[in-house]
């Protein structure tokens, strides 16, 4: 890995200032970025650590919403969101392994937007709001393709605000070596309707399965999606699974998630 200058600001304002420097890059838990830098696929001149910013950490529930600070590790969400939003807590408790969960953060995960990451599905299915240092972005506008988001240069995710659904569950088919989702489905049932988000399968990253949303909004039962099928064109194919295999997984996992919710 190439060397860099390391800075660790204590406030969002100082972090934003540091990120204006040429070649500066934000570092959250580093569970993806450090590995990427070791491979020299990234070589920032300055790393701005976000792990020392107290105002970006923590989980709180109020008024039907759960707010998670951008630099909150997965393990903290798994423990502290359990009462208010158990479906989200369970997702956080299943990411990677315990050591990854103690470092990796929600802000880092959704800023990276890996097409097989777990968190994007929860953010999209919940219709969450991504709060940054400069604005609020609706989940439907935030995810824009593989490793691509609405974030601008130097913009950091400070909070994610989740409306708490009546029922929700995430079920993933684990890729056992990477522990990423070979395919994962997050189902969230609100009074206004059901949202279904799929990760690990879309060639353009996380997406909503709108046909299933319509069917489940009328009848929230696993059988409601029996008559539906997913078009494999537009899905990822690799040595772990063909697009057709993933299309079938989406349906199976959606049914399991509805049953588990």
């Amino acid at each position: 890995m190439y060397d860099f200058e390391f800075v660790k600001p204590a406030s969002i304002a100082d972090a934003v200032k540091a990120l204006k420097e040429d070649g500066a890059q934000a570092l959250s838990g580093g569970q993806t970025l450090i590995a990427t830098m070791k491979q020299r696929l990234a070589a920032p001149g300055t790393l701005v650590s976000l792990t020392g910013i107290a105002e970006m950490k923590g989980v709180s529930a109020a008024g039907g919403q759960l707010t998670v600070g951008g630099a909150t590790p997965h393990a903290v969400v798994a423990a502290e969101a359990k009462a208010a939003y158990p479906g989200l807590a369970a997702l956080a408790g299943g990411i990677g392994d315990p050591m990854v969960r103690n470092r990796g953060t929600i802000g880092g995960s959704i800023a990276n937007n890996d097409p097989a990451a777990c968190y994007p599905s929860a953010v999209l299915a919940s219709g969450a709001t991504v709060v940054t240092d400069r604005r609020k972005i609706a989940a439907d506008d935030y995810f824009q393709g593989l490793f691509t988001t609405a974030l601008e240069e130097g913009e950091i995710v400070t909070q994610v605000i989740f409306p708490i659904p009546e029922k929700a569950a995430y079920v993933k088919f684990n890729q056992p070596a990477s522990r990423f989702a070979l395919t994962g489905v997050f189902v969230a049932k609100f009074a206004s309707g059901v949202r279904v988000a799929v990760t690990g399968a879309g060639a353009d990253g996380v997406f909503r399965w709108t046909e299933a949303e319509e069917a489940l909004s009328k009848d929230f039962s696993p059988a409601a999606v029996d008559g539906l099928s997913v078009d494999p064109s537009g899905l990822m194919g690799d040595l772990h699974g063909t697009p057709e295999y993933r299309a079938n997984l989406i349906k199976v996992l959606t049914k399991r998630a509805v049953a588990a919710a």
Partner: peptide, 9 residues
């Protein structure tokens, strides 16, 4: 995992 944490962090 200490291989994926910077000492300065």
């Amino acid at each position: 995992k200490s291989c994926t944490v910077f000492a300065l962090d």
